[in-house]
Design a protein around this nucleic acid. Structure first.
Lengths: 219, 219
DNA sequence: ACCTGAACACCGTTCAAGT
DNA sequence: ACCTGAACACCGTTCAAGT
């Protein structure tokens, strides 16, 4: 409590040593996974990549499982659900959500298997689920049915994105076309040429939504 | 070429040393994954588990990636697609295929992430795809649209099964319910109680199929 | 010719020892 | 009090050396 009346000396900015945070580490981990693939990632590489001890990550995350949960959360944040059309009709909202989730994940194909194999438990994603459910509820859809719709859409979106991602990544290292000798090669090749790897996503989404709407009308 | 006219001595069965085959190794790997989880699995453990050198597997599979492809093939074989109702209507066929695939995978929850993150490249599964496509083609559905339908169904089925599997496995070690303090807890809890984890699968399948049929009618 | 297992370059995670 | 990095118990994969 010894007050100093003279104006405090204005020191120059000290050389700041960057501090590790959970968020920064998760973002850095995602960048490493994007760059070199999930297989090549390691806790030690992350620590050294951010300029710290190989073990530094353990002061912020319990273990790799915990860190990967953080990476999944980073991905979910990138979806930026706040800017979805929450005031429009629920079908538009749901469809936009799925498209956004797909686009976000496809920007990080190497991380899709990580995201897809993790149960949703982050508060942010649970919160989004609740908001969506409320929206459907306001439109007259009972919660049980609403939950079914949301789960179906989410599962289709992730299944689709996963298929695209692993095909894209696998294609780099191995061959993918069936041998042209096969008798039915023409049918498959013709079909595969006529439809790109992902042009069926919106078709599928629409089908699910129409299907549910139809079953609602028949109830 | 020295022929011996006396009847050959009938020797007792020699102690047979079991020989490793690709199929047996893949089945054994699946059993280990079922028992201890994908994380705990290793090439060395597989070799010793079957009573051979830790490196024995490398004489039959190039590397772990190659072995896992074999495990995925084993799983696909267990689906037993030959006994599907190939002579019935295509909707029945497709639906049965999806249900069978789901049931098979859910018998091996620990292996679902492996199966889901592997592009289909085994001859058997490509063959099944071609047969299905032919079936739809016979029903008047153009190949491009048929491929879209098949892909959607497959992606939904795998996305669904993956969600069920990781939730089931994750529930063993962590908590899963949202904190009861949350304001919308009641809505979510009520909905979750009213619908089990997987009662929406057939609903979703039906929705997809109805949706596609509807869009076909409007074409 | 075939198989083994030593060796290499890594891992995730813990924890005693240092500052 | 905080952080480091040695240490432990593993990995996947290669390949020289043995039989």
């Amino acid at each position: 409590m010894t007050a100093d009346p003279s104006p405090p000396v204005r020191l120059p900015e000290p050389p700041t040593r960057p501090t590790l945070t959970r968020e920064y580490l998760a973002a850095a981990a995602l960048a490493l996974i994007d760059a070199h693939g999930l297989r090549k990632f390691s806790m030690r590489k992350l620590g050294t990549a951010v300029g710290f001890d190989p073990m530094a990550v353990y002061r912020h995350y319990d273990d790799q499982e915990d860190l990967f949960d953080g990476v999944a959360e980073t991905l979910f944040t990138e979806v930026n659900v706040d800017t979805l059309p929450w005031d429009g009709p629920w079908r538009e909202l749901a469809q936009n959500y799925c498209l956004r989730l797909r686009d976000t994940l496809l920007r990080h194909p190497q991380a899709v298997p990580l995201f897809a194999t993790r149960p949703v438990r982050s508060p942010a994603s649970i919160d989004t689920g609740v908001k969506m459910l409320t929206k459907l509820s306001d439109a007259g859809i009972p919660p049980a049915q609403g939950l079914r719709i949301i789960r179906c859409l989410r599962e289709f979106t992730i299944g689709h994105t996963l298929a695209i991602a692993v095909t894209k990544l696998g294609a780099d290292q191995r061959s993918r076309k069936p041998e042209p000798g096969s008798p039915d090669y023409n049918l498959l090749a013709e079909a595969a040429d006529a439809t790109t790897l992902d042009d069926h996503f919106e078709t599928g989404l629409t089908a699910i939504l129409s299907g549910f709407e139809q079953s609602a009308r028949m109830r």
